[in-house]
Design a protein around this nucleic acid. Structure first.
Lengths: 132, 132
DNA sequence: ATAACTATTGAGATAAAATATCATTTAGGA
DNA sequence: TCCTAAATGATATTTTATCTCAATAGTTAT
């Protein structure tokens, strides 16, 4: 009845998500790990990311029209994606919004959740474009 | 210098998006058209949907982790997706929210837009599950 | 109405993101 | 150390969408 083994690969995935200030996607995590551990498989990275999300240790940041990103910050917050370089960063609302069934006409649906994705231009891309 | 030809296929795609109360995705639009016009190609459906969106005649409704849906209602509003059957419907906020750079710490980003996707259980799926 | 030009189409290949399959490896308890 | 099943690596498959390119068909000029 003992499940969930601790593997080297799972540790590597965890490290790759944790030791970064931004929010990498699965491919970026794979690329970072494969540098020092060339035998790791992409499938293993995806599998371990899913496990970590299931275990609540990592958050999946879904964006519109692109691959999922991953975040080890568990505090509730939102994300913004750069429309140019696609990087994802945290975003804070000064006062949290309240979107509950009281202020929405859900046309018969039972509301379960909502996700907000912000889009913008990151500082680096602003500089690049200003430099041109 | 004459571009943009009106084709039968484009008309069929337009009809399929318009003559429906819900918000079909590209595959559903293809399936509807192919019944009566078996020679239409999936690529043509995708291409014409993109054209219609570019021309501002149809709105692309992006959802998290699934195919895009399409909406011929141009009025500004939000959408909710059923977590079970994946259908998409309109949703109204009683008072519109205001997410501008004034009430967000954008960590250096220039805010361009945001999208909200609601998730819930549609009336049909609620009934199905109640009946069991 | 006909010809000519080229945008659009249909069919299939390709791409991107993620999951599934399966033989092999390995973590961890006995 | 041995055993067993969980996890891995390699690859195939799935899903959503775009790309390629020869053939077709709108549109304009004649």
């Amino acid at each position: 009845m003992k499940d969930k083994r601790q593997t080297i690969q799972k540790g590597l995935v965890w490290d790759a998500v944790t030791n970064t200030t931004n929010h990498p996607n699965a491919e970026q995590i794979y690329e970072r790990i494969v540098e020092k551990h060339p035998s790791i498989s992409r499938a293993t990275v995806y599998r371990n990311l899913n496990s970590l999300v299931e275990e609540g240790k990592v958050k999946r940041v879904r964006v519109l029209g692109g691959p999922d990103h991953f975040d080890h910050t568990l505090r509730n917050h939102y994300h913004i994606q750069c429309i140019h370089c696609k990087r994802v960063d945290d975003i804070e609302l000064f006062e949290d919004i309240n979107l509950s069934e009281q202020n929405i006409d859900t046309s018969g649906y039972t509301l379960e959740s909502y996700e907000i994705v912000f889009n913008g231009i990151c500082p680096e891309c602003k500089n690049k474009r200003a430099a041109q």
